[in-house]
Design a protein around this nucleic acid. Structure first.
Length: 840
RNA sequence: GCGGGUGUGGCGGAAUGGUAGACGCCGGGGACUUAAAAUCCCCUGAGCUUUGCUCGUGCGGGUUCGAGUCCCGCCACCCGCACCA
């Protein structure tokens, strides 16, 4: 070793080529080794890799390289979630074809990923916009269709009345269309749905087996599926009709003071001839479809002339049309119990309806007043006839039993989970392989006509769905009658694309979506890593597809991801100035500002800028740092090391220039230490040997638990200890161990050093160092000496010393004796190898 | 609004109910150098009457010989909410 500095600008590329030429990371399905499938959520090809990707993929990369060192055959693939709205937006704004734009982005991002040196099997790469991929997806869609898991129904969308187009939730800003600024309306369209609810129970049940998923994600999915037991019953109406309602709180039925129905409920629609009712229903249509908007909107109601007869008291309850009742959930109608439901409370207060107490902390509190809000908690039932004195649970059962016995209602399980609407009125997605025949209705496209390929010649100059406007594409013939027919012009939700891509990575036959035998070899994924923002939708949909395919007998796994890890975001502080003229902040990028002793100033004019909070990197706040620039400056290993250091992986990682510079310094520091490797050195250093073996074991445990920041800290410690040690065989062994320990994290540096000492072959192919268990335990420990739990002294003791010996050592401490001050000792607590605590 | 999470020095964080602040960054002092960079060494939670003591893990209570950790009640911030991916 002669170079004084490690030069990533030439080493990075050299080793990346070496791995590629050797096929080091190409997964061999036929290998006899144990298999590990390591997967990170594949990226949307937005154009540039961002730090969030780098963090996500670095974590997966460390696991993949580590598992390989541990003798596993590793599958670590990469591909592109390539359909979606940004490509269409680019088409509208810049006049580029979505396909061209996407392909160019993929090429650019792939080159970026390669420069970071990830251990990826690029032979399995694909993009979801490849006709081959989405053709197989169409076949799977038809499989589900034929199995009765696909159907069509009306559903509400955000409608922009000016642009005459359907808007995504993110395109609705404050209830207005993002381009037109027009107030968005709710509109009904016929759309395709997947019957995810058919698997609701199984999806819920399956959560219990996912032990290596974060508890919080399982909880979120559980709440999302939202299994609830309740009562469905019908009110007799004053107009002779019936009103079926569903409630999860039948125990509070004596507290009901009104009924509320959705604006699109048949009864409400039936009253639509009345101008006031029609106007109110119109009003309810305004605003977007987002849950957060619907639920924070002011509760509005229209009191109809109809009343509902209470099944027990016979009282006539007013029936309202209300904007907070959703037709999609339950029966689209509720009984309002203001005392014990916060929405009902707000509504009753506004419309001056009675608020009765039917649950109290104890029977003596039966007439306690409410303190400005509903009480949804547990208690005993009061003011409720035959339910009085029961617990909430018992009363629920009693009401359901009574309703069933008397035949006016029955217990029912209701799910919050709704069927998955997969129709999108857009171009850049998988065409839904259905033909609408004038004689036979919707008919599947015959399998031999798949894939239904998107037309290339499209026009984005007008709003609306380009597929629908295309002059010829949708015109075809009915597969049954041969008569002219129209293609479905909706495309599939891009979540469908990401619901089975992990199966395609495991096997890529040309004639079918995947090979079940290959899938069986690799699945389930051993570690699946991605952002917590996917905790519910993507992960639930992927679990659903896997189940549905297992249900059809196509694969033999139900849960695709054995272990899930959700990593935090990469954040950065923001720099801004308030634009007085427009009253909004103007943001500056990190490279536009300079930080010095006085603070942060704009390079352009030298004047100060406001330093804002540390938040997620985003283009709109300009607080982004481009990985390419950083790699060019510091090398891939420094960036990878930064991604793993300091912050626990599940938490946010604040980017800082000082931090990356520290990492780059550490790369050089290790390089200097590696140069001190001396194969001929002799002599033992027991303490360093111990430290080395303890570190190897601890780093392995930390990596397996994804505690990368802790592994990094251990490596720093061993580095420091090794630097300080005098030359010896033990020191050379420590240096060699360090090369292997950092190999998954700083692979370029590790290869360079390994080759320089003549390690032989690639360190990427070398095994993880062995640990001598005898060296893992220390023979001396530090004992804390406490008085009343306060530290007074510490003392060294042999490991495993007896309680009596430890107590004697404690009593010999002058500091402890001074604290005791001769007070009588009431108790002595001795924790072996830890502490002695004297209680006086 | 509903669901989920997070909170420890100037900063990122560490800590099976048992020595709070490992490790890193920043900062201060020193060495080397004609000088700088690089590198190396030392210090670095606050306070005090400084052999040592007191306070200190978002806030207020509690359990315990002992609480960052367990329990109860708050506060602040972040994420998700079904057409962003």
């Amino acid at each position: 070793m002669s170079d004084h500095r490690f030069d990533p600008s030439q080493a990075d590329g050299r080793w990346q080529r070496a791995w590629e030429e050797a096929g080091t990371f190409t997964a061999d399905s036929d290998s006899a080794k144990p298999k590990s499938y390591i997967l990170e959520m594949f990226p949307y090809p937005s154009g540039r890799i961002h730090m969030g990707h780098v963090r996500n993929y670095t974590m997966g990369d460390v696991l993949a390289r580590y598992q390989k060192m541990r003798g596993h055959e590793v599958l670590h693939p990469m591909g592109w979630d390539a359909f979606g709205m940004p490509a269409e937006n680019a088409a509208m704004e810049k006049g580029v074809h979505p396909g061209e734009w996407t392909r160019a982005n993929i090429a650019q991002m792939k080159a970026q990923l390669k420069r970071i040196g990830f251990a990826l099997d690029w032979t399995r790469e694909f993009a979801t916009c490849d006709p081959e991929y989405y053709g197989h997806e169409q076949a799977l869609f038809l499989d589900l269709y034929e199995a009765g898991l696909v159907y069509r129904k009306e559903s509400t969308v955000n409608w922009d009345p000016v642009d005459m187009t359907v808007l995504a939730n993110e395109q609705v800003i404050d209830g207005k269309g993002w381009r037109s600024g027009a107030e968005v309306e709710k509109r009904k369209l016929n759309q395709w749905f997947l019957k995810i609810t058919e698997f609701a129970d199984d999806l819920l049940e399956g959560l219990g087996s996912l032990e290596d998923w974060p508890e919080k994600v399982r909880l979120m999915q559980e709440n999302w599926i939202g299994k609830s037991q309740g009562l469905e019953f019908s009110f007799d109406l004053s107009n002779g009709g019936k009103l079926p309602v569903y409630t999860t709180r039948p125990d509070t039925i004596f507290g009901a003071s009104f009924c509320a129905i959705a604006a699109d409920h048949p009864i409400a629609q039936g009253l639509g001839d009345d101008a006031d009712v029609a106007a109110f229903i119109e009003q309810c249509k305004r605003g977007g479809t987002k849950a957060a908007e619907v639920e924070t909107a002011e509760k509005l109601g229209y009191r109809t002339a109809i009343t509902a007869r209470h099944p027990f008291t016979g009282e006539a309850l007013p029936v309202f049309i209300a904007n907070f009742v959703l037709m999609e959930y339950g029966t689209g109608a509720v009984m309002g119990v203001p005392g014990h439901d916060s929405r009902d409370f707000e509504f009753a207060t506004k419309y001056d309806l009675p608020i009765a107490r039917v649950v109290a902390s104890d029977p003596a509190q039966a007439d306690a007043p409410f303190e400005g809000e509903a009480e949804a908690g547990d208690g005993v039932i009061v003011n409720s006839d035959f339910l009085n004195g029961m617990t909430v649970e018992a009363a629920k059962a009693a009401v359901i039993a009574r309703a069933e016995a008397e035949g006016w209602g029955e217990g029912r399980t209701v799910w919050r989970l709704r069927d998955w609407g997969v129709s999108r009125q857009r171009y850049w997605g998988t065409p839904i392989p259905i033909i609408h025949s004038p004689d036979h209705g919707p008919v599947p496209v015959p399998r031999d006509q798949l894939p239904v390929v998107l037309p290339e010649d499209i026009d984005f100059s007008e709003p609306g769905n380009p597929l629908d406007r295309h002059p010829t594409w949708k015109h075809t013939t009915c597969p049954i009658s041969g008569k002219p027919a129209l293609r479905e012009t909706d495309t599939l939700d891009t979540f469908v694309d990401s619901s089975w891509y992990f199966l395609r990575f495991a096997s890529q036959p040309a004639d079918k979506p995947f090979d079940p035998e290959e899938v069986a070899k690799w699945l389930p994924v051993k570690h699946y890593i991605g952002g917590v923002e996917h905790a519910i939708l993507h992960l639930l949909y992927a679990r659903f597809w896997t189940r549905a395919l297992a249900h059809l007998g196509k694969i033999d796994v139900k849960e695709p991801f054995a272990a899930l890890f959700t990593q935090g975001m990469v954040t950065h502080e923001t720099y801004s100035r308030n634009d007085a003229a427009r009253g909004v902040p103007v943001f500056f990028a990190p490279e536009e500002v300079r930080r010095n002793a006085e603070g942060v100033s704009l390079i352009a004019d030298g004047e100060a800028v406001d330093v804002g909070r540390v938040i997620k990197m985003s283009k709109s706040k300009k607080n982004v740092v481009d990985p390419d620039a950083i790699i060019a400056k510091h090398g891939a290993d420094a960036v990878r090391w930064f991604m793993l250091s300091d912050s626990p992986p599940e938490r946010d990682l604040p980017w800082s220039d000082a931090g990356i510079e520290g990492c780059a310094r550490f790369v050089q520091r290790l390089w200097r230490l590696f140069q001190a490797y001396d194969v001929e050195a002799t002599g033992e250093d027991r303490a360093l040997e111990r430290k080395t073996h303890q570190t190897i074991a601890a780093v392995a445990a930390d990596i397996e638990a994804l505690g990368f920041n802790k592994a990094v800290a251990r490596i720093y410690e061993l580095t420091g200890a090794t630097e300080k040690a005098a030359p010896s065989a033990s020191r050379s062994a420590a240096i060699r161990a360090l090369m292997h320990l950092v190999a998954p994290m700083m692979p370029h540096l590790a290869e360079e050093a390994y080759s320089a000492i003549g390690g032989g072959g690639l360190i990427a192919d070398a095994p993880w160092p062995e640990v001598d268990p005898a060296l893992l335990v220390d023979d001396e420990v530090t004992i804390a000496l406490q008085h009343m739990g306060k530290l007074r002294d510490t003392v060294q003791a042999p490991k495993g010393a007896s309680k009596e010996d430890l107590e004697a050592l404690a009593m010999a401490s002058a500091n402890l004796q001074r604290s005791l001050g001769g007070a009588p000792i009431r108790k002595v607590i001795v924790v072996p190898d830890r502490l002695v605590n004297i209680v006086t």
